[in-house]
Design a protein around this nucleic acid. Structure first.
Length: 588
RNA sequence: GGUUGCAUAGCUCAGCUGGAUAGAGCAACUGCCUUCUAAGCAGUAGGUCUCAGGUUCGAAUCCUGAUGCGACCA
């Protein structure tokens, strides 16, 4: 499309004697209800041409038609110049770009980027909110890879702290030595069970204390269980053998459970960080900040940074007693990550409840003069809410990840069986298909919405399998594969037809947009752009499929062309969906 | 109280750096399987783009304010 920018810029120069740089020539796709493929809006330029919009557009259109072999025709409606490109141009685009092996992958740009995502707590199993995080992180990482970056997927596991101690303590007191094998529970669910038990018992103690006349606050602080949990945390920090052993055991249960869930979700990591190793980091940075005069001490010896000039508050970075706060360890971990990989960009996939935290974190690093601070980015996403409101694990109103995955697969099975198309499949293929479709529906559902928007999930309404959904796109793919199989398709040199059908041209035009959609999805960290594109492509193919016959056309070259077009549509659908972690079945 | 995000059809969402009569899907209604997979295609109906100002030849899009929902900071 570059030639058009150039030609229009040239036209302004030769006809009107005004210099319009190519990058100021904005072209957009012509709306469906008008003739043409590309539209140039002339309104902004009529002050240069000193002619009416219509006249300007007509003059430019005439110039393009005479000087560009690719321009077949044009029409003008008010200030809109609609340009019709000839079939040869589109076939050339198809052959020179879309057919190429590396179509859909941008050239390596030599930049390294870390995507940190998932980052779970080891005291409870994953829920729907984590699923969104995992799918987003994975997809963004894959998109960046395809866009030419070298990507490191990182997972910072929150494996220590008071919340783990709560689970540990409850297990010690009420567990009777229960293990995942004896309880027939996934390890993460077993540990989560004791986290809930802790909370229940703790609440009982609070009520008892309140009955004795304590205030709510006093009761919360004085309940024996919480005191014991705090004591356990101190022992852990002191390296107490017994506590550490229990901690290791219970964490290993959780990891086994997480591994299973990660596997089902199809996500993976290149690098794990554990807070048990990083929670003491950042002390050096506090000293560094004091030395550089970025931080200051208050009379009680606590260390702060003043961010009021940036519209934020004063922020504590070290307590008066010398202990770290949450952000201190994040400062240290950021430095550690950079030292490990020297990446140009570092993306944190974390919910929008931590917007303020990351704003402060990045700002502090910038003020400390870290050259890499400008590459830090918080990919903030909206919460997943239920119709009843927020999910709360302690109140049991969470949508459990494992349950949800199972339900999706069950639903996929039900719907597939009802259609009766796979009765002759081997059992293994059927099971695999149900898995693909169920996960495809779930992943697409969560990823088609822009990350920053919050998401409403109604467990009572099952996720759709029709329309703008994962299965629709999977179905389109399977449909194409079926045609190709029937034709025993082998790619060979095609003599292209002299005339393109409307649906063929539309399809080529949409296919040709894939690289720029990918580039923009990478730039915006937005998997939804890929999802929506893939849907448009599938829809466009289905229209073509419905309108034109492929296997039954008389002319062999048209048949070959349509097969080739189908084949590369399937390939592009596959590329796009694979960035979202969605697998495409050969048949369904 | 302060900061920040969101608000588009009954529901779920698109709408690129401002452009033509605001688009999809679901749900409702109507057609299309003796023809390449009907998880599909075509059509009907459904809108004061939360509200009020402003900038502009032109605003769902940009600015200001209000309202509603959410999050965060004390």
């Amino acid at each position: 499309m570059n030639f058009l920018h150039q030609a229009i810029s040239q036209a302004f120069d030769t006809i009107f004697n005004v210099q319009i740089p190519e990058n100021q020539v904005n072209l957009e796709q012509t709306k469906k209800e008008f003739d043409g493929h590309v539209t140039f809006v002339v309104f902004p330029f009529i002050r240069h041409t000193k002619k009416s919009p219509e006249e300007t557009a007509n003059i430019l259109g005439q110039y393009l038609k005479e000087n560009c072999t690719q321009v077949a025709d044009f029409n003008v409606i008010k200030g809109f110049l609609n340009i019709v490109l000839n079939d040869e141009y589109w076939l050339n685009t198809f052959e020179q770009q879309i057919l190429k092996e590396d179509f859909g992958f941008l050239k390596p740009n030599g930049e390294k980027v870390m995507v940190e995502y998932s980052s779970p707590n080891t005291n409870k199993p994953l829920h729907l909110g984590h699923v969104r995080n995992n799918l987003l992180g994975y997809a963004v990482a894959e998109i960046l890879k395809a866009a030419g970056y070298e990507v490191i997927k990182a997972n910072l596991v929150n494996d220590r702290g008071i919340h783990i101690c709560k689970s540990m303590l409850a297990w010690q007191k009420f567990g009777n030595g229960e293990k995942p094998e004896t309880a027939h529970l996934k390890g993460d669910h077993l540990v989560g069970k004791y986290y809930v038990i802790f909370d229940q018992e703790y609440k009982k103690e609070i009520e008892a204390l309140k009955a004795d006349g304590k205030t709510e606050d006093e009761a919360k602080k004085q309940a024996p269980l919480i005191l014991e949990a705090q004591e356990m945390l101190q022992k852990w920090e002191a390296g107490d053998d017994e506590v550490k052993t229990l901690w290791k055991t219970m964490n290993s249960w959780v990891y086994a459970g997480f591994d299973e869930t990660y596997k089902k979700l199809g996500v993976n990591f290149d690098k794990f960080y554990y807070e048990s190793n990083t929670y003491l980091l950042g002390k050096d940075i506090v000293e560094e900040g004091l030395a550089k005069g970025v931080f200051f001490k208050k009379v009680d010896d606590s260390v702060w940074i003043d961010l009021t000039a940036d519209g934020l508050d004063e922020k504590l970075v070290r307590r008066a007693d010398g202990t770290s706060v949450y952000i201190t360890q994040d400062l240290g971990t950021a430095q550690l990550k950079y030292d490990d990989f020297k990446m140009q960009q570092s993306i944190y996939v974390v919910g929008n409840e931590q917007d303020y935290h990351f704003k402060v974190l990045f700002l502090i690093l910038a003020k400390l003069g870290k050259s890499w601070a400008k590459g830090l980015y918080h990919l903030s996403y909206g919460m997943v809410d239920l119709p009843s409101g927020k999910m709360k694990s302690r109140e049991g109103t969470v949508v459990d990840a494992d349950d949800l995955i199972q339900e999706m697969q069950d639903t996929a099975k039900e719907k597939t069986e009802a259609l009766g198309k796979v009765d002759h499949f081997e059992d293994a293929e059927k099971e695999n298909l149900y898995r693909m479709i169920g996960m495809g529906a779930l992943k697409y559902f969560l990823l088609k919405v822009e990350p920053k928007k919050r998401l409403l999930f109604d467990p009572k309404e099952s996720i759709d399998f029709q329309g703008n959904t994962g299965p629709f796109i999977q179905y389109t793919h399977a449909r194409i594969k079926s045609v190709l199989t029937k034709a025993n398709y082998q790619e060979l040199k095609v003599t292209y037809p002299s005339h393109l059908a409307e649906t063929e041209l539309d399809l080529i035009q949409i296919l040709s947009k894939y690289p720029e959609v990918l580039a923009s999805a990478a730039k915006e960290h937005n998997p939804a752009a890929i999802a929506n594109y893939t849907y448009d492509l599938a829809k466009s193919y289905n229209k073509f499929y419905q309108t034109e016959s492929i296997l039954k056309v008389e002319e062999e070259n048209i048949k070959q062309f349509r097969l080739q077009l189908s084949c590369h549509t399937a390939a592009t659908l596959n590329k796009g969906m694979s960035l979202l972690g969605i697998e495409m079945p050969e048949r369904m």
